[in-house]
Amino acid sequence: MIFYALVFAFAAIGAGLMCNLWRLLQGPSIADRILALDTMVINSIALIILYGVLQGRTVLFEAAILFAMVGFISTVAYCKFVLRGDIIE
């Protein structure tokens, strides 16, 4: 039963990633693109966690933690660059 739930979640999150990609390519403003990238990172974390459940291994969770941190830092750095024209003043 968990396997079928995993298949459904993989399909749903994959469709969500395609929506994010559309917004990333289409997005009228820079803030749209930043938001789409951040959502892509969060969806990728969900994909990594679900793959870890499918494999039954916990090794992949370090990758998920790294992804979460890098995604947050890059989003804040990009917004900071848009706001101030510089990242570290």
Partner: peptide, 26 residues
């Protein structure tokens, strides 16, 4: 319980991403 949580997670992740292309204003 685990299957329900996984299905709910996939559903809400898709809802969030669909709202990103559906809603009109940033």
């Amino acid at each position: 319980l685990i299957s329900l949580l996984i299905v709910a997670g996939g559903f809400f992740a898709f809802v969030g991403s669909f709202g990103l292309i559906k809603l009109p204003e940033i």
